[in-house]
């Protein structure tokens, strides 16, 4: 199980002299949920298209499941493109089954699985209706199903929850977590940082085709932590020598710690000073803030 689901090395792609992807190294482990982030035009779609063998890189190499990119490996991947669409004029179940057959699944099994999955997302009634009769949200769910029918080991989801209501978002998120439990590898490309924080193990943030932030989500958040703690409680003394600055916020007091003062040491100091602490945590910035900070810093360079 030590084989990486995806590994790229020095991946580069230019379009008319513009570098869309710039010497990108990327490794996605099997069984993880990997967040693939970046502002618009950062090179996310180009990278994904190269992974799916839709376009060829100018240089660099791609390994999927430890093998160089080959037609057989593509059959083990489910891809939800950002640009959505299904055949409009044919029955939903036929459409989904056809797309799965193109991934190498026998027709009969493909139909059965398509029907079962449509039922799972409350679209059983639409199975025998034409795709175009469904609402946008329903088509969106059907499209999500289309990436799963052939039972792929690796899923590449580009903005999977875009345009969905909270109820359906929750349903699909649940399915993603189920797939994760089954051991599937999931690459999750999105702008919605709260979804990334809720789902992803590790992330890659790219801008101008280059990796600017890469690693386990928790580690990254700690790295960008402002060296501060947040706490609530009673009888908190006004003077706390370990803190450079105190801020009263809605959820409690935020203390920016002085150099050399660790959060446990500060907690000890608080308790010894007689405060009754009910809540204490290290401040981690929202991923969105890190995203903005890193991208802006990169662009100023």
């Amino acid at each position: 199980m030590n084989v990486l689901a995806i590994e790229t090395h020095d991946l580069t792609k230019q379009f008319n002299g513009l570098t869309a992807v710039d010497h990108l190294d990327l490794a996605v482990r099997q069984g993880e949920i990997f967040g693939f982030l970046g502002p618009n035009g950062a090179g996310k779609t180009t990278t994904i298209r190269m992974l799916m063998d839709i376009i060829r890189p100018d240089s660099g190499r791609i390994h999927i499941f430890g093998q160089p990119l080959a037609p057989q490996t593509l059959d083990r991947i489910g891809y939800l493109p950002e640009e959505r669409g299904l055949y409009r004029k044919i029955k939903t179940v036929d459409c989904l089954a056809y797309l799965a057959v193109l991934k190498g699944m026998p027709r009969r099994i493909a139909r059965e699985r398509a029907l079962a999955l449509l039922e799972r997302v409350d679209l059983a009634d639409s199975a025998d209706k034409k795709v175009e009769t469904m609402s946008r949200g329903m088509q969106q769910k059907a499209q999500f199903v289309a990436t799963l029918v052939h039972d792929p080991e690796l899923l590449i989801l580009d903005e999977p929850f875009h345009g969905l209501d909270p109820l359906n978002t929750e349903l699909l998120k649940e399915m993603v977590l189920e797939l994760h439990e089954q051991g599937k590898t999931i690459i999750f490309s999105t702008h919605q940082m709260n979804q990334v924080e809720a789902l992803c193990d590790r992330i890659l943030l790219i801008d101008h085709g280059r990796a600017v932030l890469y690693g386990p989500l928790q580690e990254i958040k700690e790295r960008y932590a402002p060296h501060a703690v947040q706490f609530r409680g009673e009888a908190i003394p006004a003077d706390l020598p370990g803190a450079q600055r105190l801020e009263q916020q809605e959820e409690g007091i935020v203390a920016y710690l002085a150099d050399g003062v660790t959060p446990p040491a500060f907690l000890r100091q608080l308790v010894e000073s007689g405060a009754a602490i009910t809540h204490y945590e290290v401040v981690t910035p929202p991923l969105e803030d890190i995203f903005i900070e890193v991208v802006e810093r990169e662009r100023q360079r």
Binding site: R49, D53, I54, I77, E83, Y87, L99
Partner: peptide, 17 residues
Amino acid sequence: GEEKENRVIEILLSSLS
């Protein structure tokens, strides 16, 4: 033309040459 318009093409090209 339809496959280009409704973007199915992207899925098709990720499935076969």
